[in-house]
Every structure is written in structure tokens, then in C-alpha cells.
Nucleic acid binder design. Structure first.
Length: 379
RNA sequence: GGGCGCUUCGCAUAGCGGCAAUUGCAUGUGGCUGUAGACCACACGUCCUUGUGACUACGGGGGUUCGAGUCCCUCAGCGCCCA
């Protein structure tokens, strides 16, 4: 089961510091949940991941269902044992793939809109590669092209077989260009699915988080938070899009968190560039996952106290400084920008590992400081 | 000495009469937020009033043709083969 204890509440914002107790140990919140889609934080061993001060990971139901399949994971002793991660673990439900392999793919966009788009997703519209039905979603497997169906029942069954500590309800992550009508209808479906997930989930050791949707629409966000928040979930996920303006994001999350039960943990799904971290924590978020640290690392980009640094650029060819002079991680202690630049240009795999390590360490250290600041009343 | 072949954007390649000219690498710029991504997109002769724009270009020179990387002659460099 899951226990959540709030140790300190900010007087200045909705921020709080807490301890999340899972079957596989404790998590100090707020914290980043690094992404291990296929059962690994790409490029790193789990011993290394622990060295980045990571406390909890999130793997993915859709991807693990396709490959290797949950039965193989179960034969391997469950996801913790299979991937040799004895610390807390989440699985995402596959709901994000409804977006990323659907409308996200069709329109070439992420869940945050970068610029105003003329395109609009309206009621009745279907993505090219999958079919969204009242009971679930027909996917086209990205592994071998076969049709696979996943709905709330299927996702719960797979997630129970995988065996993570915290699992998520199956939702539809709506595209940022969906109109109010589409988003509303999708929301009602996500709500119905949430109830089915609660009913289907049998394993008492796993905690189940419901997911709030509602897109950029305040009325829908509040409606969703009220509804999902009234159900007996162990915690809550906040999903979907958060507008094209970062200032609005904090406000939007605030709307939702004002409605959710205060004593239960809140996980913000898929948000967390460095500049987002303090705002979302101030809006009352306890945990959040983001691919940015590991994803950008594999593109040669380091997150530093001075912002992003693209180490592929020739400007770093002779730069003998560490990646971030204010970072005390082993990578910054032992390696230069020049060397990492060279390895990137030589297309070696080591720099991807070094930067993955550094980026996670940087994010985790940053959040560690934020926890201290909340405890000290600074945030 | 004779014969054959090759020479195209930094490198490597395609092209076989309509071409500022293919592709890969390299280079440059941009993107990436519940990971189909160690990925993707764009640019990569010069100039400008940025356009169905101008100029200069496929080793050098000459020729055939309305039109030549593309065909012919010649020179140079490189390679292979025979003396």
C-alpha cells in the first residue's frame, strides 16, 4: 500500500514537502521521476541511476506490453526484479501513447503547443494510426504493426502483472489543439475509464493513481479534478496539455490541485524542464516525470546552472571547463567539455552516458535544494 | 614507348544532350516536456532588390549543338595493363 505524509506545507504557495512510502521504500517529495520507458533509464545502469540521487522511476505499460510482454516480465520475477530496480517504481498506463502515437503523430506536435496552430481536433475525429473507442483504443503496434487493443481493463491487468508500486489509470491524453467539445467528451470517457480501473484493480500492494484531464479549459479541469478527486484513488496524476504559455501552466495546475484532496499525493505527468520545476511545485505538485534530462543528454545537451549547453557545438572543442562548474557530480569532477565534445563528434556512446548521469544529478540536486527551501520557508 | 580508364560542392559519390547538378559523410542552424527518437527538420557556389532573380561553375583549352559534367579534339594530373 501507499502512505503519504506531509512534513511541511508552505505558507507562501501550495508547495509541500512529504514522504511517500511505497512497497519498495520511501520517496522524499517533491521529486523528479526519471523515465525508464522500456524498463531502463536509457544509457545508464541502475547502479548509476541511484548515484544520480534518483528515488523512483516510471516505466511504460504500452512499451513493455509490446516488448517483451508482461508475462516475460512476470517470469523474470516482476518488473522490480526483472530490471534490477529494488527502489520505488511507477508504470504509466499507456494513456500518453493514445496521444503521442495518435494526434501527436498526425500533427507533429508535443503536448505543449509552441506556437499558435490553425489546426483543430474536433469531435468525431480519429487519429490516422489508431482508433479511439468508448471501451479503449486500437493501436497499431510500433514493434510489428499488429493491431492491439488497450483500454482500462487491459491496462490494469498488464500493470498488475508488471507489478510496479504505483500504477496509473488508463486515460486519453488529449492534444493541445482539441476544442472544448472534443476535450469534454474525451474527459467523460477518461472519467468512466477511471471508475473501471478502480473496479478492475485487485492487487492491494499496488497504489492506483487516477488522472485528471481537461486540456486548457478551466471548467473542464475543475470538473475533472472534482470528479477524479472524489474517487478512492491512492493519489492523482495530472495529465494532458498545459497551454502554450508557461505562466498559465502554474495557474492551470493550481486550479486542479485546489480541487484534489490535500492529503493525497499528486503527480504531474510529463512536465519538468528546469524552469518549470519551481512553478509546478508551488502549484502543489509532489512528483513529476520528464524525459528531458535523459532525452536531451542523448542529443549532447547538458542542463547546467547557467542553462542548456549544447556540447556538440564547435565552441566547446577546446573548452577545458567542466560541464557545470557549480555541479559536484562525478562527471563534472572528472571530465571536461572538450573531451565530451570530442566523444560526441566521434559518435561514441560514452558521452551519452556521461550527460545522462549529469543531467539527472543536476535535476535531482536542484530539487533537493527546493525541498530545503520549502522546509526553510523560502518557497 | 604503347593501350585503357579516371578527374563533379571539404571528402566520397550520382549523372550518359535541357543542370546550380544526386546521395552519404562532414559542417552549420533549429526543434525536442507521462520517450516509436544515440533522433528529426532545414541549410550547405557567390551576390542581391530573396525571385519562375543575377552571376560563376563539373581538371585546363578548343570544337560540335538552339543547348555540353554529359559528344569530339587537345593538354595536364592520377591510376591500371603491355613493352
Amino acid at each position: 500500500m501507499l502512505e503519504f505524509k506531509i512534513l511541511k506545507k508552505s505558507k507562501k504557495s501550495k508547495a509541500r514537502v512529504g514522504i511517500l512510502k511505497t512497497e519498495h521504500g520511501l520517496v522524499e517529495t517533491p521529486t523528479l521521476v526519471p523515465v525508464a520507458t522500456q524498463g531502463t533509464v536509457k544509457a545508464l545502469t541502475n547502479e548509476e541511476v541511484l548515484g544520480t540521487k534518483t528515488q523512483i522511476l516510471i516505466a511504460n505499460t504500452y512499451h513493455l506490453h509490446l516488448k517483451p510482454g508482461e508475462d516475460i516480465v512476470k517470469k523474470g520475477g516482476g518488473l522490480h526484479k526483472f530490471m534490477n530496480w529494488q527502489a520505488p517504481l511507477m508504470t504509466d498506463s499507456g494513456g500518453f501513447q493514445v496521444f503521442s502515437l495518435g494526434f501527436g503523430q498526425d500533427y507533429g506536435m508535443g503536448k505543449l503547443l509552441k506556437e499558435k496552430s490553425d489546426a483543430e481536433v474536433v469531435i468525431g475525429q480519429q487519429p490516422k494510426l489508431l482508433k479511439i473507442t468508448p471501451d479503449g483504443v486500437w493501436f497499431r503496434s510500433i514493434v510489428d504493426g499488429r493491431k492491439i487493443f488497450m483500454g482500462p481493463k487491459e491496462s490494469m491487468k498488464i500493470q498488475e502483472t508488471l507489478g510496479a508500486d504505483i500504477i496509473f489509470a488508463f486515460d486519453e491524453c488529449t492534444p493541445p489543439i482539441a476544442d472544448h467539445e472534443y476535450t469534454k467528451k474525451s474527459l467523460l470517457k477518461t472519467h468512466r475509464w477511471a471508475e473501471i480501473c478502480l473496479k478492475e484493480k485487485k492487487n492491494k500492494k499496488q497504489a492506483l493513481f487516477g488522472i485528471v484531464q481537461g486540456g486548457k479549459f478551466k471548467d473542464l479541469r475543475i470538473e475533472s479534478a472534482k470528479f477524479i478527486g472524489s474517487l478512492p484513488f491512492d493519489g492523482f496524476g495530472i495529465g494532458g496539455e498545459f497551454g502554450d504559455d508557461k505562466k498559465i501552466m502554474e495557474k492551470m495546475i493550481g486550479w486542479v490541485n485546489s480541487e484534489l484532496p490535500e492529503e493525497k499525493p499528486r503527480h504531474l505527468l510529463g512536465i519538468g524542464h528546469p524552469e518549470d520545476i519551481i512553478p509546478i511545485i508551488k502549484a502543489g505538485v509532489d512528483t513529476f516525470d520528464c524525459t528531458a534530462p535523459t532525452h536531451y543528454a542523448r542529443r549532447g545537451i547538458a542542463f547546467t546552472s547557467k542553462g542548456r549547453v549544447d556540447l556538440r557545438k564547435s565552441a566547446f572543442a577546446k573548452d577545458q571547463k567542466p560541464v557545470d562548474k557549480n555541479c559536484d557530480c562525478p562527471v563534472c569532477r572528472d571530465y571536461t567539455r572538450s573531451y565530451i565534445h570530442h566523444l560526441l563528434k566521434a559518435r561514441e556512446i560514452t558521452p551519452l552516458r556521461l550527460l545522462s548521469f549529469h543531467n539527472l544529478y543536476f535535476f535531482n540536486s536542484f530539487i533537493e535544494k527546493v525541498r530545503e527551501d520549502i522546509k526553510n520557508g523560502k518557497i
